[in-house]
């Protein structure tokens, strides 16, 4: 079908012209193929196989792992928590990050210091941040209880990581704390990318600050806004270290999300089959997001 006259010739021409480019790409393509594409394929095949206790697939061609997963009585809870965690943290991040970006886009003394301090949570190793917050949330000796009781907000010390509600809120808080700066900085870049002459025109028309914001800033920021929000949702979906260190899903799976639960299924309960099935589900969800994301980027570029 491809052997149209001249096709081979064109192929040879392409090769002659761009030979070096292909050679330069070989190492990275090999790397991706072995350590990324192959494990993904392997994961999908294994999810549809009988899996023994050593994680080896023994017999391909079954939906049993997915059926077992669907019958896992904890799954509805895990799904609910995963969605709440991902969408909830991102919603809070947007609410904080957008005003923050607007502030950072104005001129005030100490602006670069503020930016640098704001980025510290993002630069700190995830693991270390989570460990430190665990200490801050500590029931008897933690600084949070101490500060809140000094100020008079609480009378009795709260075991923050011991109650399902507060533990989940704490995990969400730490996620927001560590990601919000990146979102703010990205919004800021978007704001700075708005051509200033747009505002000049609005000023000439006598638009007030709010009108200017609503009619000029918001529409200009729509694409950036959607892309960054989507990216953050994806990041929150795959969040693992924060919860694993802070609560490890405790108490009684009430702070588990898909990422931590699949790890438990596989490496703690040795239900490898269900672990693979859940991995594939998470993979499919992230792929969908990823497709929307690349589409949005394409639209952005085309605009």
């Amino acid at each position: 079908m491809l052997a149209r006259p001249g096709f081979l010739h064109r192929l040879r021409e392409e090769w002659a012209e761009n030979q070096l480019a292909y050679w330069l790409l070989v190492p990275s393509i090999l790397g991706f193929a072995i350590f990324l594409v192959f494990p993904i394929a392997n994961m999908i095949v294994t999810a549809f196989s009988d899996v023994d206790i050593m994680a080896h697939p023994t017999h391909f061609g079954t939906f049993q792992n997915f059926i077992d997963l669907a019958h896992d009585e904890r799954m509805p809870m895990i799904i609910r928590q995963t969605c709440l965690y991902a969408f909830g943290t991102v919603l809070i991040e947007v609410i904080i990050a957008f005003p923050l970006a607007l502030i950072l886009n104005t001129h005030f003394p100490g602006r670069s210091l503020a930016k640098a301090l704001l980025l510290i949570p993002w630069a700190m190793p995830y693991a270390v941040s989570a460990i430190t917050w665990k200490w801050i949330f500590h029931g008897q000796m933690g600084s949070l209880n101490y500060l809140l009781s000094e100020v008079g907000i609480i009378k009795d010390y709260v075991v923050w990581l011991g109650n399902p509600g507060t533990a989940f809120a704490a995990a969400m808080f730490v996620e927001v704390w560590s990601s919000v700066a990146f979102m703010a900085i990205t919004f800021l870049a978007g704001l700075q990318g708005i051509p200033p002459h747009i505002y000049d025109a609005a000023k000439m028309d006598g638009a007030g600050a709010w009108q200017e914001f609503r009619d000029m800033t918001v529409p200009q920021m729509r694409n950036v806004f959607m892309i960054v929000t989507l990216l953050s949702i994806i990041w929150a979906f795959r969040s693992f270290a924060v919860i694993w260190i802070l609560t490890k899903g405790d108490p009684i799976f009430r702070t588990d999300i898909a990422a931590t639960y699949l790890y438990k299924l596989a490496f703690e309960f040795r239900h490898f089959g269900q672990g693979f099935a859940l991995s594939v589900c998470l993979f499919v969800v992230l792929t969908l997001f990823s497709v929307i994301y690349t589409r949005l980027l394409g639209a952005q570029e085309g605009a």
Binding site: F35, P39, A41, T46, A55, R238
Partner: peptide
């Protein structure tokens, strides 16, 4: 979009 945790079981087998 695909961080280690999503692929961890596939990677583990490999």
């Amino acid at each position: 979009m695909f961080p280690p945790i999503v692929l961890i079981l596939g990677l583990f087998r490999l």
